[in-house]
């Protein structure tokens, strides 16, 4: 029997560890993420974020520890995990030489939606993004900010429980970056859990909770407000700097 509180936990990680030879990339990390939460996963380059994320999305086997993602075990049910999550990286993974409509059809297809569902949802998506008039344009012709919105919308096209975003806003202009966060807020408002990495410390402030990884370990985990209270430091940027510069690992 699960208690109501446990049902709302969509990611549960216990002592998760990954070693490559004698190098411990991720060292016994533990945390939980709640349904609909925006969880910021911060860390310097080489701290182990990407390795941890790969284990959570079911594409890398851990050395030890436990994790349950979207209700599935990462050792035994990686395929179910992949069906229940969305993923977007800074490289977007859209097909540049396909049109907007073709990309939508393609992603709908690989997520296993049937033709009626794809038709209905793609109408909905084209309306929401105001893309009807340009649906037959190649993705390569779109401005970066539009591609980003399309990529995010396709990452949640199959209504996943969790969407993983790996530095989704690198390099875009400050207005587009904030419009992208409007989409993240909306997804979270609709109950989709958002797990996001970023190098922009102002974006860490938009998360409900953040963790800061240093040398494979989680060194801090709380809401931005509580972190600032606990450290008696009034910016996340400075807290990050304080923790991350103690890193011994040279990437």
């Amino acid at each position: 029997m699960t208690t109501p509180a446990e049902k709302d936990i969509v990611i549960k990680v216990e002592n998760l560890t990954k070693r490559f030879g004698d190098f411990t990339a991720v060292n016994q990390i533990s945390f939980e993420v709640n349904k609909g939460e925006i969880f910021g996963f911060l860390g310097a380059n080489g701290a182990g974020k990407t390795t941890a994320m790969k284990m959570l999305i079911g594409i890398l086997n851990p050395t030890s520890g436990k994790a349950n993602v979207a209700g599935f075990d990462i050792y035994n049910q990686p395929e179910q995990i992949k069906r229940n999550i969305g993923y977007m990286s800074q490289k977007f993974s859209l097909y540049e030489d396909l049109t907007i409509a073709e990309n939508i059809n393609f992603f709908g297809g690989i997520y296993g939606l049937n033709d009626d569902e794809i038709k209905f949802k793609s109408e909905e998506l084209l309306t929401k993004l105001n893309f009807h008039a340009i649906k037959n344009n190649l993705v390569s012709s779109l401005p970066l900010g539009w591609k980003q919105k399309l990529a995010f919308s396709l990452a949640i096209f199959h209504s996943p429980k969790i969407v993983f975003l790996d530095e989704p806003t690198s390099g875009v202009d400050p207005i587009t970056r904030r419009q992208f966060w409007d989409l993240i807020y909306e997804a979270s408002h609709n109950g989709i859990t958002v797990f996001v990495t970023t190098h922009y410390m102002d974006e860490a402030e938009y998360c409900n909770r953040i963790s800061i990884m240093v040398d494979g370990e989680i060194k801090a985990l709380d809401s931005p407000k509580e972190l600032k209270n606990n450290f008696q430091i009034d910016s996340i940027d400075d807290i990050f700097y304080l923790l991350a510069r103690k890193a011994k690992r040279i990437e």
């Binding site: 800074q90 390099g171 190098h199 990050f240 991350a244």
Partner: peptide, 13 residues
């Protein structure tokens, strides 16, 4: 040309 893009805040400093 963009030497610090995608680089973490500590390395950027």
């Amino acid at each position: 040309d963009e030497p610090t893009t995608g680089v973490d805040p500590v390395s950027r400093k």
